[in-house]
Design a protein around this nucleic acid. Sequence first.
DNA 1: CCTTATAGAATTATAGATAATTTATGATTC
DNA 2: GAATCATAAATTATCTATAATTCTATAAGG
Lengths: 222, 222
Amino acid sequence: MTAANEDTIANRISRILADRIVTGQLEPGAKLRQDHVAEEFGASHVPVREAFRKLEAQGLAVSEPRRGVRVASFDLAEVREVALMRAELEGLALRQAAPHLTSSILEEAEQATVAGDNSRDVRSWEEANRRFHRLILTPCAMPRLLAAIDDLHSVSARFLFSAWRSEWEVRTDHDHRAILGFLRQGNIENAVAVLERHVQWIGQKPVKSPTGSTRDVFAIVG
Amino acid sequence: MTAANEDTIANRISRILADRIVTGQLEPGAKLRQDHVAEEFGASHVPVREAFRKLEAQGLAVSEPRRGVRVASFDLAEVREVALMRAELEGLALRQAAPHLTSSILEEAEQATVAGDNSRDVRSWEEANRRFHRLILTPCAMPRLLAAIDDLHSVSARFLFSAWRSEWEVRTDHDHRAILGFLRQGNIENAVAVLERHVQWIGQKPVKSPTGSTRDVFAIVG
DNA sequence: CCTTATAGAATTATAGATAATTTATGATTC
DNA sequence: GAATCATAAATTATCTATAATTCTATAAGG
């Protein structure tokens, strides 16, 4: 009857684990042991295994048969790969969605941008940013495309969290405003062009590792 | 020890079911009952459920909690959606792969095209076609992108099988040859342009339904 | 001192059993 | 005769148990 029962245990576990991986609570390479996870959620390991399969499909975990599953690791090459894929797919989605955008949707997107600018931490910024992208893309009405974009967003968010774990500086999102401006003018191609460039922008930040040395961390910022 | 043991039962089941769905042996909307599948493969239903999850992620099956899983159905809108996604992603892949293409790879791709032209049935044509695309795209060295393209290829193949179930007419693939020509010249952008148009071409064929009436069936042909 | 066996513990993968839910069937009423 | 409700059968989702594999730590041998 309740919404909780609409969902399987496996789905719930996979959502929670996905969130932990994305936010960095679970580090790249960490082992996911089915019995331990099962015990934590008060379930058996059958639904846990199904949750692992879903994480695998989303690219958040990798599984070696008989040797268990680990949190997926990533490097600069993968950050770039995801950025390029997002640019192509979000460009496509926006081109299809644009004719169906209403001024009330654009208004909501504007509010999401403001919310992003006012965010005091990465988590709420990421939420607002995703809301913006979803708002202007959803009207394309292409479910498979939107699902693919959503998975890529999760991975992007993971990069972001890993880079900006502790500190967070406020920024004003000029790209989002430029996109909205072009959309209001009905200038679809310019909006798409800005979006594609926006998504490909890769942030870079020096981070002190536990050993004291400094390394550069990269993340998709948009 | 053998390669068969390198793989889990779940993976084997999912591969075989995927093939049946793609080739049309399992029709859209058909129920997949875990106990029956388990019995057929001489396994229990735990690996079967995991196989279902994988099919779901590939977009070949849809699952409603507590109500079972069915072979995914599709319509013209989805054929178009997959075509557009493939155009974008294969274009991206080719642009990245082009600098790493060797003349021996292009030679292999040429042979795949010839094999396609000589194919007497849909299955072998599809195999050759996929080989062509994989050959020219793999050198992009972007595993996530290639996996996404591969899943889309499966869905495309499904459309193709559903449309051309019985008869198959021989065609010469001019697009593939044009792409190879541009690649040999080092003219990447033209190669990409032809590829993107090629993949978006949607074949159309009148098919007699069991009731005797005629309807148009659409498929991605490339 | 380092390498290689080996026994034990931990973990994965699968099977078998149970509870809960949905679908099908048939009787009953309007 | 159609619709509705109750009951039975089938099916899904989960849990508990077992077998097989991998990992770990320790000891024997070079």
